[in-house]
């Protein structure tokens, strides 16, 4: 464990909690892409199956349980409890355009052709593009609630911090995983446009609205 990975995990946890609180407090999931939340639930489910097979640490297990629990709680909020506030008309990204290439790639490019490894690879590739429906929805509605931009900021920041974690681990442990690094780079690059708007607008007290 290093400071980048710890702050990365805490940033990820903060994002997940901010989203749950936003929906719970405002009793509305307006502006939230249910499709992205489905993809995140799939990412966690396919990546954390090793909860059943191996124990790494209390931290590792408890964080995985929290992530999976919050992911499904969010889905419950979006598609059941606060379904009336779900803006399906703007959440129209074709997720099959993500699932098919990502599914195919995880069979072609992986470290080991075993079920758990392919599922892990699939979750890594899927996570890198899972935010696209959410970013697409914001571009369609032309704006985002400020609390939603904070959610996106911490979500994007978490994988950026993981990139530093991988630099740290390569330098100090001589370890690296090309699949996770390339996917993490793609994932972080997809947030760059949002990061620019967040820093130049939201942090200056303005509302995030597009076109910029």
């Amino acid at each position: 464990m290093n400071v980048f990975r710890l702050t990365g995990d805490l940033s990820h946890l903060a994002a997940i909690i901010i989203l749950l609180l936003k929906i719970w407090k405002t009793r509305s999931c307006a502006g939230i892409s249910g499709k992205s939340q489905i993809l995140f639930a799939v990412v966690f489910t396919s990546r954390y199956l090793d909860l059943l097979t191996s124990f790494i640490s209390l931290y590792n297990t408890s964080m995985k349980v929290i992530y999976i629990g919050c992911a499904y709680a969010t889905l419950y909020f979006v598609y059941m409890k606060f379904k009336a506030t779900y803006d399906g008309n703007h959440d129209t990204f074709r997720v099959e355009f993500l699932l098919v290439p990502v599914g195919g790639l995880s069979f072609l490019v992986n470290h080991d052709f075993s079920p758990l490894e392919i599922l892990w690879t699939f979750s890594i590739y899927l996570e890198s593009v899972a935010i696209l429906p959410q970013l697409f929805m914001i571009s369609k509605t032309g704006e985002a609630e400020t609390i939603t931009t904070h959610y996106l900021f911490f979500l994007g920041l978490y994988r950026a911090l993981y990139l530093f974690n991988w630099i740290w681990r390569f330098y100090f442990e001589g370890f690296f995983d090309m699949i996770a690094i390339v996917a993490g780079l793609v994932q972080t690059i997809l947030y760059c446009d949002f990061f620019y708007l967040y820093i130049t607008k939201v942090l200056k007290g303005k509302k995030l609205s597009l076109p910029a």
């Binding site: 990975r5 090793d50 995985k64």
Partner: peptide, 10 residues
Amino acid sequence: SQSRNIKDEL
């Protein structure tokens, strides 16, 4: 393989 280690990451 090298990816074995990364399974300690979330």
